[in-house]
Amino acid sequence: MRSRIAYLERERDFIKDLYSDMPQMLRMISKGALLSSLLNSFKNRLQAQLPNAYCLFIVCDKECSQWHLQYVDSINESLLSPNGRLVTVPQALITFAATPSCPKRHDMNIPNLLEWKHWQVFFERHGFSDVSMVSVSDGQGSIYLMLAFQREDTLLEGELMGLALDSYASWLDSVFEREKADYLLLEGSHRDPSTGLLRRFSFDNSFNIVLKDSRRHFQRAALFSLRLLSTSTIDEGELKVWAGIMQDTVRDNDLLAHYDERELVMGIRIQHLEDAEIVATKLLKTLSDSSLSSNRLIRAGVSIGIAFYPEHSSLESLHQAASFAANSLHNLPGYRLEFHGAYYESSSDFYSL
């Protein structure tokens, strides 16, 4: 009974100490503190919680091919090569990192285990007999591992060590969830949920950067106004299909935005005027595919107006010119090029007499 009471008292004190500064940690996470600062705080907190253990912090990629120590000290530096990389990684550690379904593990008598043979000298030098491990994925391709090495004469009860590992994993999970939420909020503020394309203000900011770069490097750019000819009520599902086809057709570095209910706007860098025609022809060809005939918006067609920089020096004038060019088609599918106030079917006509 006395031993049981003594254990429960130790457990109480351990848990009380473990969660004593939890409000402070949650406040740091909620404020969006830097990842490096948070990880350093977690490391210091965990090492203080486990004074008789030595904590080793490692990051590896999801393929378990690249391994790095997060913190180097006088104890773990013997595991590193002169260029700062882990000389060898025990098979036990590789297996553990590659098994996310088992985020915790405890190995006993590690100096004599074949799976840990690469670090036997390290264990014997510091008298380590046991290791408890926890792994957390950041969801971006990296796995964060914490290893708590213990000596046989100062082993912590398994339940208490488990609590410490769970707490560390929860802290990291909270940080990664916060980062993911920040990213989603940022994406949500920049993209229209009905199409997945850029919102107008995000497109304007991005394309103005393109224009600044074009001025600096004497480059060309083109702005497309793509107008739906359908007059029926917009079906969001059909609109999303149309937007998806546009995204799949254009290049990765092209900008594509949902400006209003029946207009998409696209901005691209070009080298020659005819490059814009090639893009317009490609878009119209894709939309004419028979497999898309069931989509009413696509079936009704799209008129495309194109304007050029430096012929127009601002986004506002480019958009106005592209819109006028699209309207000059009089609700017929196809494209028109605006050049110095006139509308053309081909750039080859720009300089004809």
Results as ranks from 00 to 15, higher is better:
1 M>N: 14
3 S>Y: 14
3 S>G: 15
9 E>Y: 11
10 R>M: 14
12 R>N: 15
14 F>V: 08
15 I>T: 15
16 K>F: 13
17 D>Q: 15
18 L>F: 09
20 S>R: 15
22 M>K: 13
30 S>V: 03
30 S>W: 04
31 K>I: 06
32 G>C: 04
33 A>C: 10
34 L>S: 07
47 Q>K: 01
49 Q>N: 07
49 Q>H: 09
52 N>W: 00
53 A>F: 03
55 C>A: 09
56 L>D: 02
58 I>T: 09
59 V>M: 09
60 C>I: 09
61 D>M: 07
68 H>M: 05
69 L>N: 12
73 D>P: 06
74 S>A: 12
75 I>N: 09
80 L>D: 02
84 G>P: 07
85 R>H: 02
91 Q>A: 04
92 A>H: 01
99 T>K: 07
100 P>N: 10
102 C>T: 15
103 P>V: 09
104 K>F: 13
106 H>E: 03
108 M>P: 05
108 M>D: 10
111 P>M: 09
114 L>R: 03
116 W>P: 01
117 K>S: 13
118 H>N: 08
128 F>L: 08
128 F>R: 02
129 S>P: 00
131 V>T: 10
131 V>E: 05
132 S>F: 12
132 S>N: 06
134 V>C: 08
136 V>K: 10
138 D>E: 11
143 I>Q: 04
145 L>W: 07
151 R>Y: 01
152 E>P: 03
154 T>Y: 06
154 T>L: 05
155 L>H: 09
159 E>V: 15
167 S>N: 15
170 S>V: 05
174 S>C: 14
176 F>W: 12
178 R>T: 05
185 L>F: 10
190 H>T: 11
190 H>V: 10
194 S>L: 14
195 T>C: 08
195 T>K: 01
195 T>R: 01
196 G>A: 14
196 G>S: 15
199 R>S: 11
207 F>C: 03
209 I>T: 06
209 I>Q: 14
210 V>T: 07
215 R>Y: 06
215 R>N: 05
215 R>M: 05
215 R>E: 13
216 R>A: 12
219 Q>S: 13
221 A>E: 01
227 R>H: 09
229 L>M: 05
234 I>H: 02
238 E>H: 06
238 E>G: 04
238 E>A: 05
238 E>Y: 03
240 K>I: 02
245 I>W: 03
246 M>L: 15
248 D>S: 14
248 D>C: 05
249 T>P: 08
258 H>I: 01
259 Y>F: 12
262 R>F: 06
265 V>D: 00
273 L>A: 07
277 E>H: 05
278 I>A: 13
282 K>E: 03
287 L>T: 00
289 D>E: 02
290 S>F: 00
295 N>E: 07
297 L>K: 00
298 I>Q: 02
301 G>Q: 01
303 S>N: 13
311 E>C: 04
312 H>C: 04
319 H>S: 10
321 A>F: 00
324 F>G: 00
328 S>I: 12
329 L>G: 08
330 H>Y: 07
339 F>Q: 12
342 A>S: 13
344 Y>P: 12
346 S>M: 11
